[in-house]
Design a protein around this nucleic acid. Sequence first.
DNA 1: CTGAAAGCGCTTACAG
DNA 2: CTGAAAGCGCTTACAG
Lengths: 354, 354
Amino acid sequence: MSQKPGSAPTIVDVAEQAGVSIKTVSRVLNHEPGVQEATREKVLAVVAELKYRPKLSARSLAGARSFLIGLLYYDPSAAFVAGVQQGATVRCREAGYHLVVESLHNDAPDIDVQVERMVSALRPDGMILTPPLCDNPKVLKALRESGTPCVLMSPGRQPKGHPALPLVRMDDVHAAEEVTNLLISLGHERIAFIKGATDQAASSLRYQGFVNAMKAHKLAVDPELVHQGDFTYQTGVEGAHQLLSRRVRPTAVFASNDDMALGVLAAAQRLGLSVPADLSIAGFDDSAAASLVWPPLTTVRQPVAQMAREAVEMLIAAQRGEAEGPTQRVLPHELLVRNSTSALAGKPASKRKV
Amino acid sequence: MSQKPGSAPTIVDVAEQAGVSIKTVSRVLNHEPGVQEATREKVLAVVAELKYRPKLSARSLAGARSFLIGLLYYDPSAAFVAGVQQGATVRCREAGYHLVVESLHNDAPDIDVQVERMVSALRPDGMILTPPLCDNPKVLKALRESGTPCVLMSPGRQPKGHPALPLVRMDDVHAAEEVTNLLISLGHERIAFIKGATDQAASSLRYQGFVNAMKAHKLAVDPELVHQGDFTYQTGVEGAHQLLSRRVRPTAVFASNDDMALGVLAAAQRLGLSVPADLSIAGFDDSAAASLVWPPLTTVRQPVAQMAREAVEMLIAAQRGEAEGPTQRVLPHELLVRNSTSALAGKPASKRKV
DNA sequence: CTGAAAGCGCTTACAG
DNA sequence: CTGAAAGCGCTTACAG
C-alpha cells in the first residue's frame, strides 16, 4: 500500500494502486464517459478496498461545484422546517450533496450581508428559501447578485421586474375550495371564515378558495362571518368569540390554519359547545397538534417534504444543465377529514351536491 | 485594481492592494498575533473595500479546519430539532462556522456507512448528536474511528469501555421532582404516573424523580397508578382509561411527556371529566401543542436552544485547544405552571409543605 | 514583525 | 480511451 497509515487515502493512492492516472480515477468517480469498462471496474474495486472518499473541499476548490445546498428559513412552524429538511436531506444524500442550514431573522437590517457572507464563504450550488424569506427582496437581491441559483418554496407574488424564479408550491386556492366543499356537502350554509396574516401570501389564496366554493354553491359570504386573524392561536380564540356571538351563529368555522382552528376549538369548548355536534371546525396545515386534540381536526396536509425534495432536484438538474421538468411546480395536497366536522343536525350529509 | 472583474476577490488581490504578502493577510484574517497594528488596519481596510471573503473550501483544504459543524438527528419532535438548530446556527454564524444537517434513520442497517461517508466527505470540525442517535453504538463507533469530535445532547448512559464523551443535558430527575412537588403542594396525594418508552434514557430518569418526590413526602407510589407508555399520544389515552377506571381514581396524572399528557387530557374530556377541576394533568417538554390546548398544560421546558449553543461552543473551543469549561454540562430547565393543574377540591393549595 | 515556497487533493483545459 | 501539467485559494512549516 502506498497509502500512508493514519491519513485518509487520496486520489493519488487510488490511482497508483489501480495503475492508472489520477485523471482516470476522477473520470470514473464523476461518471464521465470515455473510460474502458475494465478500467472502470478496476478503479471502482480499489476505491472500495481503500474506502476512498473524495474530499469535498478539494473538489469544490478545483471544480465548479461545491456539493452544498443551502436552506434559509425563519420561523415557519417547526413542523414545516422539519418536513423540509426531511425531504431535502434525503434527496441530498442520494445525490452526494449536503444541506447547510441557516436560521435568519426576516427583519434583521443586515440580512443581505448575512446572506452574502454565507454564500461567498460556502459557494453553495443552490439555495432553498422558505416563507417568509422567499418573499424578502433583500434576500432575493443578495442571492441574485451572487449568482446563486434558488428555488422558492410556497412564495407569494414574485417581485416584478425580474425573471420568474423557480419555485415549488401547493394549490392553496384549490385546497381551500375542497375544505369549503366538504362543509357544504355536510349541509352547512352559515360557514364562518378566519383569515390569516395579511402579509402572508397563503392568507388571501385560502380566502379566495373559500369564496370561490361558496359562490359556486350560491351561498352568501356574510361579512359578519369573516374574521381577520393572523395565523396565531390567540386570534382563533378571538375570532371564535366574535363569530359565535352573532345573532344567528355559524354552524361551521373554517380557520385558515390549524393554530387558529385550535383556538376556535378551545373557545367553543369553553363556551360549552360540543364539537362537531354544535359546531364543525376545519383547519389547514395538518400541524402535529391537529391530530392530538379531541376531536382531531379536519385539515389539509401540505406535501412539504416532497416539495423540498423537488427543490433539491431542480437545483441539481439546473447545475448539470439538464432542464428536467418545469421550474414552477405545483404539488398535490391531501384533504384530511377527521372528527371536528360532521353533518349538520337535521340535514343529511348527502343533501347537497358538491 | 488587480482584481479581475466578474470573479470574486482572492487573498492575492487583497495582498497586492494592501502592499503586503498573502501570508500577512492570512495572519490578520485568522487573528494571529505578531502583526503590526498599522499593517493590520491597512489589510482590514482593503478587505472591507473589496468585500473579500475567504473561500471555505480553500481554507479547509489547506488547513486543519473546515468551519463546518455537523448535526445528526432522527425523529425527535420537530420542536426539538427546531430549537437545536436555532441555537446552533446562531452560535455558528457568530463564530464563522456553518451547520450541516443530516436526518438519519436510527435503525438503518448501514447507518455507520452513512455517517462515515458524510464525515469523510465533509471533514466537519465537530458533530452534534441528538437522541436517539447519541445513544446509537454504530454511530458513535463510526465517529470515533474517524476521529471526529462529538457532543451528545441529552444522551442516556454512556457506553462503557470508552472515555466519557462531552455532553449537554438538563436534569430530568430534578425536573420531574419539581412537577411532582407542585402536584403535592396543590394537595394531591393519589398521583398517577405514565412512563415513557423503555429504550429512552429520559423515561427512567423522570420516573425516578417522581418516585423521589413521592417518597420525600411519605406518599405511597401505588403500582396500580403507574402506567407504562411509550411517549405517544395513543399510550396517553390508554393510560388514562386504565388509570381512571380504578376503584379510587387518581386526582392528578403526571404524564412524562406532553404527547401522552395530551392523550390523558383528551380521554378525560371524553369521559366527561373537567380538567383541572376533576383531574389535574402535568406533562413534560413544553411542546407547541401544550400551550394550544385548553386548558394549557403544566409542563417543563427544556433549554434546547441553549444546549445546542453550548454544544457548538464546546466543539469550537476544543478545536482551538482551549479547555474552556466542563465537557459535561447540565443546563437549567423551567417549570411552567399553567391551567391543567389546580388545587385539590377541599384542600387549600398551601396545606402541604413542599 | 514579515515573506517566499511548498503543498493540501482535487478538476480543468489540453494533448495524444 | 488515457495522461501530464497547471491551477483552484488558501495555510503550513520554515526563514530571516
